[in-house]
Design a protein around this nucleic acid. Structure first.
Lengths: 108, 108
DNA sequence: TTCGTTCATCGCCTATCGCCGATAGACGAT
DNA sequence: ATCGTCTATCGGCGATAGGCGATGAACGAA
């Protein structure tokens, strides 16, 4: 909820990292998935499929992208799969963007 | 700097809009461009080219993407072009992401 | 065992991205 | 008028994204 440490470095590597996280968020379906995951507790792939009107394989790939980006946690549970939003990671991304925006607007 | 109105709708159209803005930000070169634009006052295309080690046409396209997304203002000035960060629009994106993250973490 | 369900992965296809060089328009300077 | 500079845009290229159906593994139920 708060920017823990205001980074002044702003290197190119930083840009890459931030861009990668934002890329994972830059698709309507993935944002919808995040919303659904946070709203419901069950979080299995099938449920997201029913909610989203996309093929199961497509949803699975979107989920994988979110997991690879570190924004969603994955845990296999019997034949089901359990996906859960990583609130801390999500907050980090938001904080990174806020820091970028802040540094862009400070000298204005 | 503050979320003007906390939106509770969270519709799919909303997801599209947010995703589009984030997509414009999800490239290292464009983030670097934003940083450079905010750091310097001049903001002509050539300067960004010198700073970024990319072809002029490529930089021009990145700038166009940022302008189309509404994150950078464009104003032709003689034979130069003037690009300037739209701080308010950038703040809006940051606020939108923060709202999304907040809604995802509230029920936890 | 056999069937049904759930899921991740593979292969394929199309559309878009990201990059570049080339080009043409606009404009200041000579 | 001519030259040099700065831009935006076009066309082409390879790589990636995003979609789908099919498939096989895993597992519970009958």
């Amino acid at each position: 909820m708060n920017t823990p440490l205001i980074e002044k470095t702003c290197g190119v590597a930083d840009s890459r990292a931030v861009a990668a996280k934002l890329a994972a968020l830059s698709h309507p379906a993935r944002i919808e998935i995040l919303r659904h995951l946070s709203a419901s507790r069950s979080c299995c792939c099938r449920e997201v499929v029913d909610h989203l009107d996309l093929a199961q394989s497509t949803v699975s790939q979107h989920l994988k992208i979110l997991v690879d980006a570190g924004l969603v946690r994955y845990e296999p549970d019997r034949q089901r799969s359990r996906y859960q939003v990583d609130g801390d990671a999500l907050a980090d991304v938001s904080a990174s963007l806020a820091a970028l925006v802040n540094s862009c607007c400070s000298g204005r």
